[in-house]
Design a binder for these strands. Structure first.
Lengths: 230, 230
DNA sequence: CCATGTTGTTTGTTATAACAAACAACAAAA
DNA sequence: TTTTGTTGTTTGTTATAACAAACAACATGG
């Protein structure tokens, strides 16, 4: 039976605020180092401070926002060391997820969808549509991780991506255009389809490591990552 | 210069509530499946609902508490599948942490402290002081993970431990007394001291896997983990 | 006896106000 | 000029009240 009536769901305001902040962080729309004040956020959302307080509390608990002095929430500015740490954790997690994905059977529809997305990504790069490329790039990675069949894994990896969200936008202009990581993506997918667990893990780890190595080059003398001025 | 005066810091009420709930969860003082209502928690803490709301929001954001219908917070009851997922993630994370720990040099004081703790754990088992054994067991594991030099790793692993906190108490009566996992602990520490990365990872993974295998045997026909009646 | 409608209670959500700590600007004294 | 004290503003914290949805108990009608 099909539901004739649409399900009633009144999403709480703090949930909407949380999602909006989350997307803004992931897209790099907040300059690293910015302090987010409850009242200004409340004003921009058109609500009282109570819902935005819940949202910010949640973000801080997830480690997405750093808590500065006086429990203020600031969008994190990654140092070279923090980026290296993030890379180690991401490699362990995402490498393992790719391995688990390779160990399981998948229906053709799922695999074909990923192949199509890969093709889309290539054309988006050549068309220099960088912002929508990043969206597909993200969905490609998480499409693989979802194939592990471990929701907790996906959730944890998502948390790591959120943490490097603000600096992730730094990578757009130069790195992506050079098709860096392109071969790793195709090789990883091919390995998963072939059931090659070692290969899948190796390619994903290589993809992450190389991107991190590129990003590390953007650090200044103090170790802080900076957006390339070009 | 040494600070002559102690730093002034008035911890927020919701931080205290968060810590108390966190410890109670980790110690298994809440029966899995219990729904935590804001007003009852507020009454037991002697505060208004605002601080406890912040604390609960944080716990839910961390995945420590599950959110049931009507955004209510319930202490999670792990299924066999969720335990298996948790085990995969923990092995990837904690195995890698042990590996990183083995790759670095450590001062003798740190290593000796861990050896002493290991001895303490053994005597606590033989004296059947199970609850304080678990405390030392936890500190031993995290002592190793801290030696990786990666705070993010420690933080993420801590999150995973929190998630299996409620059922972790199930393991106390029988498993620990049998000295299961004892050899893995000593072997892991020895491997780290010898700089044997492969061995360190292997032993930690074995420790986690065997405990998980034991726990999985406690699942009922529906897949829910139950406290042994004995 | 069962189904249905009503009502009261419980519970999360949101807004608002009062509060305290921190910070910035400015003024006054050395 | 520099330092110090004051003041006003900003900002997170907490309590409280009003609100709405969900649930349970009970009553009512078939």
């Amino acid at each position: 039976m099909t539901t004739a009536l649409k399900r009633i769901e009144r999403e709480p305001l703090w949930d909407l605020a949380h999602a909006q902040l989350r997307d803004a962080l992931l897209a790099g729309r907040f300059e690293p180092g910015t302090v987010l004040t409850l009242r200004s956020l409340a004003e921009s959302f058109g609500t009282s401070i109570t819902p935005v307080r819940d949202a910010v509390t949640r973000l801080v608990a997830q480690g997405v926002l750093q808590q500065g002095p006086r429990n203020s929430a600031i969008v994190p500015n990654l140092s070279r060391k923090e980026l290296a740490d993030l890379t180690v954790v991401r490699c362990a997690l995402e490498g393992r997820a790719a391995r688990e994905a390779a160990l399981q059977r998948h229906d053709d529809a799922t695999l074909r969808r990923l192949e199509e997305r890969l093709a889309t990504m290539q054309s988006l790069i050549q068309a220099r549509k960088l912002e929508s490329y990043l969206e597909h790039h993200r969905k490609f990675h998480f499409g693989i991780y979802a194939m592990s069949g471990i929701p907790l894994m996906v959730e944890t990896i998502e948390n790591m991506w959120l943490r490097c969200g603000p600096v992730l936008s730094f990578v757009i202009p130069e790195y992506v255009v050079l098709l860096k990581g392109w071969d790793h993506h195709t090789a990883a997918l091919k390995a998963i389809m072939a059931g090659d667990a070692d290969g899948a893990e190796r390619e994903i780890v290589a993809d992450i490591s190389e991107a991190a190595h590129y990003l590390a080059g953007l650090a200044d003398s103090t170790g802080q990552l900076k957006r390339p001025s070009g």
